[in-house]
Design a protein around this nucleic acid. Sequence first.
DNA 1: CGGTATCCCCTAAGATACTG
DNA 2: CAGTATCTTAGGGGATACCG
Lengths: 177, 177
Amino acid sequence: MEDGTSPSLSYRGDTDDGYDVRQWDVREDCEVRQILDRIADKWSLLVIALLDQRSLRFTELRRQVDGISQRMLARTLRHLERDGLVSRTVHPSVPPRVDYALTPLGATLHETIRALVTWTETHQQEIAAARAAYDVRAAAEQRQADEEAAARTALARAVLERGGPGQAQDVAGRVPR
Amino acid sequence: MEDGTSPSLSYRGDTDDGYDVRQWDVREDCEVRQILDRIADKWSLLVIALLDQRSLRFTELRRQVDGISQRMLARTLRHLERDGLVSRTVHPSVPPRVDYALTPLGATLHETIRALVTWTETHQQEIAAARAAYDVRAAAEQRQADEEAAARTALARAVLERGGPGQAQDVAGRVPR
DNA sequence: CGGTATCCCCTAAGATACTG
DNA sequence: CAGTATCTTAGGGGATACCG
């Protein structure tokens, strides 16, 4: 069966401080969360985007997405169909032909998603810059930490060699912390 | 190190049919995909939503989200920080205090996400209905299949008992394809 | 063609313990 | 308090094989 819907999660956080922060946050564990998970999933978005252009058959989708396994495409499509986002039409012919199309509901979702993609495209540069800056900072801190560790090791060695901590005053001054 | 950025995925689908379907689809494998994955991730959304109200400390977030592990919160926050969506401020005091807040960039993202959440809330009913309908259909088809299987089994048994397929004409008429 | 069933691997994420 | 390090396990997802 492989289930398909996760077992609720439920992050209630019943903080009794009277302060009702969170507006839609609390309800996320019931419906919103699941739908978000669906559209956030690796393949759903691609399929929705592709179907927005025109309806497609199973194999056409398989080829267009390229990288998706038959299993995952079938799974994705069944999920989307179940949620009423995609319609499945079987043509009784030989060889069999099955068409998938976006439902009106699916189309409105695609519109909404577009906004998100647009946001991403708009701020792509800022994000890239932020990442670069972060990575530089992180690398610097790492180097710093390494140096301090090396200094501590040197101090320890010095202490051991000279036979006591009293003799290490001169080197201790140069060690951080 | 645990990496943090997935190894590119690359679903190119170089269909040389000249028909250039897909507008933003193709670019998804580079930047958009990653950012979408980030914001779509299980915890990021919650954290962003929470921080939109006011800045919070690590433990406050931990309590509010309730269900998140220390590990995942730390990870989520570092990701968000790296992407420039959340700022981290360390107050050099004892006990140590670290505040997390949404950056302006993070705030704009929160606005965009709101649209999605609104969509979900608006269409919640439709989706629930679609799921219910699907499940009913699926159950019906399952029952159908079971009955046919049972019929086939009965036919097979009848054939074996009577000693030949020629004797099974009467029952064969009642068995679906 | 359009799937489902099966096996199997690998990583994301929870639990736990330790550090500054 | 605010994390990091380490171990372990569930399940997401690919490969393969087979049905209608």
